[in-house]
Design a protein around this nucleic acid. Structure first.
Lengths: 339, 339
DNA sequence: CCTTGGCACTCAACGATACCGAGTGCCAGC
DNA sequence: GCTGGCACTCGGTATCGTTGAGTGCCAAGG
């Protein structure tokens, strides 16, 4: 597609522009040692690259700026995993050594951490596309008319619902309902309606029905769709200088549904980076997104990602997202105890 | 302190400035019908108001801008509750009619709603200053080495922790531990360490100890300090035009601890509004905060508030925050079932 | 004594103008 | 095909009036 020299020039321009945020002129490119050509030659090549859509010129007599296509070429040419500098690796190690606690807090912390690490906004999605299966379920009476149904899910999460009863079941009836429920729900995905055959005790059936309904339609997390944690949105205020752009980007970051759709879209297309207008969202035309799914015990459990300007530092971003998603998965696979 | 005319002039200037965001000149003030004086008189009074610290001048030959002290006078002069316009009342009614679900989701939704209602950033804090008391507690065995301790709190919230055991207690032992724990913890505030006397079965004691520890130091919400929900932070990008200000304010909004401290501070001082530098936070020097606590069943359970520029629309803000906090409290008092 | 019209003064905002220089495109020569 | 040279472009910055909103002060009038 591009001969070696064009590729080298394009790469140099992208790198320079990412660093300086200024249009890159031919002289700067000609100065880099790998290329021993004059600026005039570079100018010719730059003209060609512009005609092919890799570069753009803000106006005549300005340097060149990479287009989305230019960034795309650059990103695709990053083949080796990309090194994190030791300081960052150290930070990551430290974070995951000390991080602990409840899943949701962990995800929120991770989003903040990743944002600090990369200096872009970070997003962590916990998706529930594949609903966790119920590993164990139990009804517990707590007071004459109050009971709890507690389900432990395959993901290690605990789904619990308090039940208010019209009846006052005996302990035996609660126990019967509990085991009847367990017999029919264990192994099933949570949040899906499961028909449960009646027993010979209508009171037990009512109790089972209430518990089953709570697990199905209950307001516990699992069936409320994916959860989104955004960290470091404030950094977008530094990444752009047009207030309107900042506003638009922040708006998107608050629309969790949009974020989730966007990220799923990117993953569905088999990408790990979406640049500028590659994703459809017009307000994010100046943004790139780097994502990586994380896995808990081999199952995709969510995604981590960062959102930055198209002129983001892609190697670092890719490396950081990759490492953090891996480590997050590991950390969550260990600490499956606490839901 | 201020004679009637000065007060009227000050009020007019504040209102005008809130609307236009432009320094207010003497002629504009002289035009208002209540005051039938010439602009020259207004100028004299404005000079006096400036000397007394209520007004400031960006530069000679510009109009006047209210100082924090000026806003404070204005806010303190708002005595009657302040009317919400019918559209907003309608919105509020509708929101609380349809809002439902889990406490945390409800609070998050409320923060988003309040932000939309006022067009400022909104904050909802769920504080746990007065830890809820345990109404009922129970240990449930789920698997040979896995048990759950479930505590229902006075607030209606459910605190549950999964326990991983070294032993394999019998059902009777679990039941014994459960009732022993219940006997000593019921009525106590959660999250505080309670000594529990030993029984004659060391295995039961170990189980009780683990459960007790989980409830005390466990990672469940109640002892993790207050939770903060921020909605509509993006709106701060419209409220200010200096990018650095936006950045600073967004930063604060992400520091939950700072927010909570700030809000508690304001409430502790018996205020419902903090203007500009009245709160200590330098980055928020251009912001005002309007807060109101909400109550669940008569107990203070948290705070709702909004954060906007010092030139915010105070009457509306005060009214909106007051009404939303009240309605939120009512809504949560009804739906105490689901934790 | 307070109010008011008048007047000189101030100063940010705006527009016009000129200038600078980084960067380009093109061309002729090596 | 590469390179040095050169004319050209045009955004950015600085300079300089000009404008006008707004003030402070004063002297006259109720």
């Amino acid at each position: 597609m591009l001969d070696d020299r064009k590729a080298a020039i394009l790469k140099a321009i992208v790198e320079e522009y990412i660093q300086t945020a200024q249009p890159v002129g031919s002289m700067v490119v000609a100065r880099i040692p790998e290329l021993s050509v004059s600026s005039a030659t570079v100018r010719n090549e730059m003209g060609a690259l512009e005609r092919e859509g890799y570069l753009a010129q803000p106006h005549t007599s300005a340097g060149r700026i990479p287009t989305d296509k230019g960034y795309r070429f650059f990103v695709d040419s990053i083949t080796e995993p990309g090194r994190l500098d030791p300081v960052q690796s150290q930070q990551i190690r430290k974070f995951f050594a000390t991080a602990h606690g409840e899943l949701e807090r962990m995800l929120a912390d991770t989003s903040r951490f990743l944002s600090g690490l990369t200096d872009y906004a970070a997003v962590v999605v916990r998706h529930s596309a594949d609903p966790a299966r119920i590993r164990s379920v139990q009804i517990v009476g707590l007071a004459p008319r109050v009971a709890v149904v507690v389900a432990i899910l395959g993901s290690g999460a605990v789904d619990k619902h308090t039940l208010e009863l019209a009846d006052e079941p005996s302990e035996a009836q609660v126990a019967a309902a509990s085991s009847h429920l367990a017999a029919h729900l264990t192994g099933e995905p949570v949040g899906r309606w499961m028909a449960i055959p009646p027993t010979d005790d209508p009171l037990v059936d009512r109790l089972v029905g209430i518990a089953n309904a709570a697990l199905t339609h209950g307001s516990g997390e699992p069936d409320e769709g994916p959860q989104v944690f955004v960290g470091g949105a404030a950094r977008m205020a530094t990444a752009f200088d047009a207030v309107s752009t900042i506003r638009q980007v922040l708006d998107i970051l608050e629309q969790q549904f949009v974020l989730v759709t966007l990220i799923r879209d990117i993953l569905d297309r088999g990408l790990s980076v979406a640049i500028g207008t590659e994703h459809g969202l017009q307000p994010l035309a100046d943004c790139s997104i780097v994502v990586a799914p994380y896995e808990i015990e081999g199952e995709r459990a969510g995604t981590v990602g960062i959102l930055g300007p198209t002129r983001m530092h892609y190697e670092q971003a890719l490396a950081a997202v990759a490492v953090v998603s891996k480590r997050l998965g590991q950390a969550l696979s260990e600490g499956t105890r606490e839901g």
